Computed example of a mutant assay.
Amino acid sequence: MIRMSRAVAVAALVTMGMFGGTAFADSDPGPDPGPGPALGFGFPKWLLDESQSKITVVGTGSQSAVPDVMRLDAGVEVRRPTAGAAFADARTAAAKLTQALLAAGIQAKDLRTNDLSLGPEYSTYPTVSDYRAAQGVEAVVRDIASADKVIDAVAAVGEEARLNGISFEVSNNRGVLRAARDAAFRDAAARAVQYARLAGRELGPVLTISEEETSSPPIRFAAAAPVDSTSISPGQQALSVQVRVVYELF
């Protein structure tokens, strides 16, 4: 007479065969294994692992746009025999620089102090040769067509003026990012279809989506001297998006 435990074991083996396992109808199931950890019939743990019916892919999309804003990193720097003289003259030169930028069309709200320093300079340590004082300012140029005018205004401040660099950015990037997301999702879907086909499976619905923006850093150029009126060009800036998509597999 066949015990109930043997019938249950055979049914479990047949079920395993439906999932791709191999069932041996004439094999001896051996002693009753008792209740399994999850289903109660000793099923292999991998049958219960949800990751076996999912696929995770990462898609990348990129979209380029012409920057419409320039950020100018400028400042002043002086060296004097005493710390007080250096600091006072640097402050005076910084005020002159601010007035020059305002006269060139930069709005006060688009000016920001980004550096203020004072320290000794050594000929042979610990002998102090002079004191160096500096003050920096970041100016947002919203009309790139006036970029050369702004740069020339900084250079005209005098020998204390410093041009440390410029960068470009897209002020309103929502439309650009939307297009990048579309491209990223299409890329993820294409990858998922390919992997499902290679695995001999069918792609199911989307289970989860998560996004990580990977925008390119602002394009930055060094500038140390006045430039020709036609030398400032924003070029193009690429904004990238990565999307992680989890699909069900059948």
Rank of each mutant, 00 (worst) to 15 (best):
V14E: 13
R91F: 00
E138L: 07
A161N: 09
R178I: 14
V227Y: 10
V128Q: 11
A145E: 10
L39Y: 02
M70H: 02
R181V: 15
I166H: 07
T98C: 09
V66A: 01
R6Y: 09
A184V: 02
A223G: 13
Q236C: 01
M18A: 14
D32I: 11
L198R: 10
G61Y: 13
R162I: 11
D49M: 03
D110K: 03
P33I: 12
Y125C: 07
E50K: 11
T56I: 05
A238V: 15
E160V: 05
Y122L: 12
D110Q: 01
P33N: 13
V243Q: 11
T15E: 14
F221G: 07
T230P: 00
P44S: 07
L47D: 01
P205S: 14
K45Q: 13
S146H: 11
E121W: 00
F168V: 10
A90T: 09
V170M: 00
T214L: 08
N172G: 12
T208M: 03
V241N: 00
F250K: 12
A190N: 13
D187H: 05
G59W: 08
S210E: 07
I166R: 04
R191L: 08
P234V: 06
V66D: 01
R186P: 02
A65T: 09
P81I: 00
A65M: 03
P44Y: 04
Y125Q: 10
P120S: 08
L97D: 08
V243A: 10
P126T: 04
V57G: 05
S171A: 15
A238L: 02
A25V: 08
A156R: 14
I106T: 07
G21M: 04
A65R: 08
L111S: 03
R3G: 09
D26S: 08
P226A: 10
E211V: 03
T124H: 03
A83V: 06
A224Q: 04
T127Q: 12
T214K: 06
T22A: 12
A23N: 12
T214E: 07
A183D: 14
S229C: 06
L97H: 07
A38F: 06
Q237Y: 01
Y195G: 02
A180L: 09
G61D: 06
I209D: 10
G136K: 04
R174L: 12
L198A: 12
A139P: 05
V245G: 02
V10M: 15
Q194G: 02
P217C: 00
A95E: 13
F41T: 15
S231W: 01
A156C: 10
V150T: 00
N114I: 15
A184G: 01
M1R: 08
V66G: 01
V137Q: 11
P226Y: 06
A94F: 15
T230M: 05
G17K: 10
S216I: 07
A190V: 05
L163K: 05
P31S: 14
S27C: 07
E138F: 06
G17C: 11
Y247P: 01
A222C: 01
R178C: 10
G30R: 09
A9P: 05
G235D: 00
Q237H: 04
V128I: 15
I151K: 02
L198C: 00
V241M: 11
G200M: 01
A100S: 11
D28M: 09
A223C: 09
P234H: 01
S117W: 15
Q194I: 05
E50C: 03
L177R: 13
T208Q: 06
L72A: 11
I55V: 15
L97Y: 07
